[in-house]
Amino acid sequence: MTKVLLCVGNSMMGDDGAGPLLAEKCRAAPCGDWLVIDGGSAPENDVVAIREQRPDLLLIVDATDMLLSPGEIRVIDPDDIADMLLMTTHNMPLNYLIDQLKDDVGQVVFLGIQPDLVGFCYPMTEAVKNAVDQVYRHLDDWVGDGGFAALTSEA
């Protein structure tokens, strides 16, 4: 089974660096058999590389304002991203990226980490660092949605 982990975010923007921190952890100590891509703040630049892999599973991890407590993690249905008006800091909405890949990817799991502070040169908060560690620990034996709860409209 081919699995791609696309880590999204900007490490110079405080908690928005959750994705790049996860990519860094995976490079330092690989966890499971994931192909890890640090998509930074322009993950659309990695569409071709992901398509070439034709992964059975594409896991996208990004700091996403879901109106939850800082550090909370939720699985977001990729089909709901555009309708939910989720706030991210990227050049292009992630639903556009996912739409570009649907024909070349088996399953897409979008995992959002609720940020607290997002601003240029802010440090990453402990709540978000802990959430990144939690995601990292789940990678080795990832099944389905990794055991994370889905974001619901009640959130």
Rank of each mutant, 00 (worst) to 15 (best):
I76V: 15
G17W: 03
G32R: 07
D77K: 05
D116C: 07
I81Q: 05
Y122F: 14
P78E: 09
D56S: 13
A149C: 10
G146C: 03
L117M: 14
N10M: 08
N45I: 07
R137K: 15
L35Y: 11
D104V: 02
D140G: 15
L85S: 15
D56Y: 10
I81E: 00
A42M: 10
D77T: 05
G19T: 02
Y136T: 13
V61R: 06
L68D: 04
E52N: 15
L151R: 13
A150H: 14
E24K: 07
G119R: 02
R27Q: 12
S11W: 05
V4S: 00
G32P: 01
W34T: 08
V105I: 06
V108P: 05
E52K: 15
D103K: 11
A155H: 13
N95A: 05
V135L: 01
D16R: 10
G112K: 03
D133G: 11
V61I: 14
P93E: 06
G14D: 01
L6F: 07
D99Q: 15
Q107P: 06
A28Y: 06
D99L: 13
M124L: 04
D103H: 07
M84L: 15
M84P: 08
D80N: 11
M66H: 12
Q134F: 13
D80P: 00
D80Q: 13
T152F: 07
M13F: 14
S69Y: 14
V61A: 10
A63L: 08
L101E: 02
L85D: 15
G119S: 05
D56H: 15
V118M: 06
G147I: 03
G112E: 06
D141Y: 12
Q107C: 04
I113P: 05
